[in-house]
Structure formats: structure tokens, C-alpha cells
Design a protein around this nucleic acid. Structure first.
Length: 309
DNA sequence: CGAATTTGACCGGA
DNA sequence: TCCGGTCAAATTCG
């Protein structure tokens, strides 16, 4: 098959898979509205995970084909688009004349690359193992190399490189390479992180009160099921605790909706009534929307608490 | 004592 | 031959 047409086929495959992903998400919403079918939701979560993996593999494949069409003299200009301003090594500009040879190379294969700039190094939801540190030419700061802890257990090929930014040593440049294929429960910071890169990922947070006025959040998204304990610790106590008397609250719900460019939109709806008056007619509904900067990496939720009814 | 990190060696592309 | 990504033995940590 001609390389050009294979690229087209790849792109169509990716497009179709994205559609399937969207439809599955819609199906999940439908199930949620009509029945509380936990098993079905779990299944849908698995389907979505599979889609994500397939897309990841196919994306890498398209990149390989695209590179193989580039003449040597064009290589530098093409690769610069993918590697951004930060030098992340020569892997992306490496010759791909022999894919089999590349597979055996110690140099990294071409993979999806994401570069983030953060002010503090905090948990990004994955478990990393440091495997190297190198002094980089013309840079005062060494570069640290991390791989996914589950590389050997589960064959997860995700890696990241962390380096202080020369112009601003208080900040770090983090280069993520490859996608996680390991099966772990991501933390909420990872949920937020992935929201910035998946255009169709939206999540719904539901807060159901029990008799103790304790709100049990539950996250629905194509990422399957998250540890509710994590959600409780990382979101419920920090973001969705408006500055009101808890006795006046009966139920709340909220969602995050990533936008195309930058800030994610968070919405909180609250239905409250006054227990002391014991009068259901006093029930009020209020809702608000807010926009907040996605604080990738730093995830300082204290700064994301503008709720004040 | 097992897991994680450190660090010099090794490897391959440019 | 240089540079940077990875390996793996040694060391440290919990």
C-alpha cells in the first residue's frame, strides 16, 4: 500500500475511533439517567479505555509514516513543530529508514509528547521511577529521567523528563512521552491534567448527602471508575465546600467541563433548605458557574476555592 | 530487606 | 567524537 494512502486510512481510523468514543460516552450518560447499572458503566469504562489505547497506538503509527515521507533536508523544520522550543533530545529527528532497527535502539521511539511548565513538582497522578540524570550542554541544570513504575509489570512505556528552566529556575519543564497503558486509579490531579489534553473528556461530579450531611462525590467519565476516597480527599474538602452553614445544605452537584483553549469550566448547583425552620417551602435552588485556570502539575486547590454563596 | 535513587558506563544518532 | 537517552551496579531509604 502506498504510504500516502495509508496515512489517509490511519487518519480516518482515528476519526472513526473518536466518534465511537463520543458515542460510548453518550451511551454512558443515557444509562446513568435511566438506571443505576454499575456493571454497565464499568463495561463502558473499559470500552473507553480500549479506545484510548487504540488511538494512542494509531497516533504513533501516523507520526511514523509522516516522518518517513520527509526528505532529509526538510527534517529539521518538520521536527521543530513537534518538539517545541524545548530541546527534548534527538529522538524526534532521528532517521526512520528502518523501523525494526529503531525498535532495537536505546533511543526513544517517536511517541506522543506533551510539554508542561510548572512552578512546583507535585503528584501528577502516576507513579514514576527515576532512572537517570544527565548534565545537559549549555544548561546549568541537569535533566532527570523518569519512567512509569509499571513499565515492567504492565509494559507501560510512558516516560517523563524534568528539568529546571534556565531563564526561570523556580519553574520546571516537564516533557511527557508516550501514553500510560498501565491500570491504576489516577488521582484527581491526573483527572484535571488529562482534561487539558482530551478535548472530549468531560466529567460529572455528583454529591449525594446522607443523614450526616456528608457528601459523597462520585465521578463519571470515560476514564472508568475512580477511587472515591481520592476524590473525597482532593476535591470535596477543598473545592466544593462553599462558605455556608452545612446544616442548610441538602444536595449539591457539580461538573468540570474542559474548554477548547485553557481554563476548564466548573459548575456547582446547590439545593438547600433550612433545617431549623423544618419548612420544605424554604427550599432554594442556586447555581453558579466559574472558570478556573487549570493548574497542571501544581494543583494548588486552595487557590481554586472561589465559592462563596 | 525490598524498593527507590544515584551515578558512571554504555550505546547510537548526528 | 560529542551529546543525550538508557542501563545497571552501588548506594540509600523506609
Amino acid at each position: 500500500m502506498e504510504i500516502n494512502s495509508s496515512v489517509v486510512v490511519m487518519r480516518r481510523l482515528i476519526e472513526e475511533l473518536n466518534c465511537g468514543k463520543k458515542f460510548t460516552n453518550e451511551l454512558k450518560d443515557l444509562i446513568k439517567k435511566h438506571n443505576n447499572i454499575m456493571l454497565a458503566e464499568d463495561l463502558v469504562g473499559k470500552i473507553m479505555t480500549s479506545f484510548s489505547k487504540i488511538l494512542s497506538i494509531l497516533s504513533s503509527g501516523v507520526e511514523l509514516h509522516q516522518f518517513s515521507q520527509v526528505s532529509p533536508r526538510d527534517k529539521s523544520s518538520t521536527s521543530s513543530c513537534l518538539t517545541s522550543n524545548y530541546s527534548i533530545g534527538s529522538c524526534n529527528t532521528s532517521s526512520l529508514k528502518d523501523v525494526n532497527q529503531e525498535r532495537c535502539s536505546k533511543r526513544r521511539k517517536i511517541a506522543a509528547t506533551t510539554i508542561k511548565e510548572v512552578s512546583t513538582l507535585v503528584d501528577d497522578g502516576h507513579v514514576w521511577r527515576k532512572y537517570g540524570q544527565k548534565e545537559i550542554l549549555n544548561s546549568p541544570h541537569p535533566r532527570n529521567y523518569y519512567r512509569c513504575t509499571y513499565k515492567f509489570d504492565q509494559g507501560c512505556e510512558a516516560t517523563k523528563q524534568v528539568q529546571k528552566i534556565q531563564e526561570n529556575p523556580s519553574r520546571f519543564s516537564i516533557t511527557y512521552q508516550g501514553h500510560h497503558t498501565c491500570k491504576i486509579y489516577p488521582s484527581i490531579s491526573q483527572i484535571l491534567f488529562e482534561s487539558s489534553t482530551n478535548e472530549d473528556s468531560s466529567m460529572l461530579l455528583s454529591f449525594n448527602s446522607n443523614t450526616n450531611n456528608y457528601y459523597q462525590p462520585y465521578v463519571h467519565s470515560f476514564h472508568s471508575t475512580y477511587k472515591q476516597e481520592t476524590i473525597k480527599e482532593e476535591i470535596s474538602s477543598k473545592i466544593f465546600y462553599p462558605n455556608v452553614d452545612q446544616s442548610q445544605r441538602s444536595s449539591r452537584s457539580g461538573y468540570f467541563q474542559p474548554s477548547d483553549d485553557g481554563p476548564i469550566r466548573a459548575s456547582l448547583s446547590s439545593r438547600s433548605f433550612d433545617h431549623r425552620a423544618n419548612d420544605s417551602s424554604c427550599t432554594t435552588n442556586c447555581s453558579l458557574e466559574m472558570e478556573m485556570e487549570l493548574m497542571v502539575g501544581s494543583a494548588d486547590f486552595e487557590d481554586l476555592m472561589p465559592f462563596d454563596f
